[in-house]
Amino acid sequence: MPKVLVLYYSTYGHIEKLAEAIAAGARDFGAEASLRRAPETVPEAVARDSGYKIDQKAPIATVEELELFDAIIIGCGTRYGRIGAQMATFLDRTGGLWARGALNGKVGSAFTSTASQHGGQETTLFSIVTNLLHLGMVVVGLPYSFQGQLATDQVTGGSPYGATTITGGDGKRQPTENELAGARFQGRLVAEIAAKLAS
């Protein structure tokens, strides 16, 4: 069974919840799924004063361990429609892996959150995907076979490029069951494709 890494950065816990659902979906398929966080770049005092969720259980990721996985699913919140600085800083350190082609042919996927429905979800997903492609990875999204992303009876995240959630401007909105279902679907699909590529 494939080894799947869910690598994320979560300021307020929304991305953490999606990451846990993605890992659960991969495990439903039978994969070994691990959660890791990108390191915080904000001083701890500033993070505390700003209400960051600093009690997250997932260990801090190292660049060196990335090549140990068959699939890597990366998630972070949007910053002006692009990848957040913490995740960008972490991924900027993968040059050695890129130079060796260490991630070539592995499966990559993306997920994100925004404050509003039109706050840059798809551009943020694409900014993550750009990194995956540069690293030689095979990109998997969230296809329309997950019918939940077609819902029009509720506000919901999700796109064919990856699972998403909408947090609201004050951050009080939590991922809905539909959004979490999309995340689980994506995790399972990534695990399935990683297994097929390995066979």
Rank of each mutant, 00 (worst) to 15 (best):
T152E: 13
D153M: 01
I54Q: 02
M87K: 05
T156I: 15
T130A: 14
E177K: 15
G13F: 03
D70F: 00
A33S: 06
P175L: 05
P2F: 00
Q117V: 15
V129K: 06
R79I: 04
L125A: 05
L7N: 08
P160N: 04
G105D: 06
Y9F: 15
K106E: 01
G169W: 11
A19F: 03
G141L: 02
P43A: 08
S159F: 02
C76M: 12
G136S: 04
L135G: 02
I128T: 14
A58K: 09
R48G: 11
I54F: 08
A195R: 13
E177C: 12
K196L: 15
A61P: 06
K196H: 12
G81V: 09
V140L: 12
A151P: 05
S10H: 04
Q149Y: 04
G101Y: 06
G169T: 13
T89P: 06
A99M: 09
H118G: 14
I193L: 15
P2Y: 01
D70C: 00
Q117S: 15
G105S: 07
T165P: 07
L7G: 11
I72H: 01
A88M: 13
Y8H: 15
L150C: 13
E122A: 11
T152S: 13
I83F: 09
R188A: 11
A195K: 11
G108M: 01
Q117D: 14
E65M: 00
L18A: 06
S34G: 05
N178C: 14
A24V: 06
L7Q: 09
A115L: 14
E192H: 10
S10D: 07
S50N: 14
A61M: 07
K106D: 00
D92H: 07
F146E: 01
A183M: 01
G158E: 02
Q174I: 07
N104I: 05
A24P: 04
N178G: 11
T94A: 06
S159R: 01
A191R: 09
H14A: 14
M1S: 06
L68A: 09
L133Q: 14
V138F: 12
R184A: 06
L180W: 08
I73Y: 02
K172T: 15
A58Q: 12
G75T: 05
S116I: 14
Q174C: 05
G168C: 12
K196E: 15
G182C: 07
G119D: 12
L142N: 02
H14G: 11
S109W: 01
Y161A: 06
I60Q: 10
Y52T: 04
D55C: 10
S127N: 08
E67W: 00
K172H: 12
D49V: 09
G96D: 09
S199V: 14
L142H: 00
T152N: 11
K17N: 06
Q117I: 15
G141W: 01
T112M: 10
R82C: 13
G84D: 14
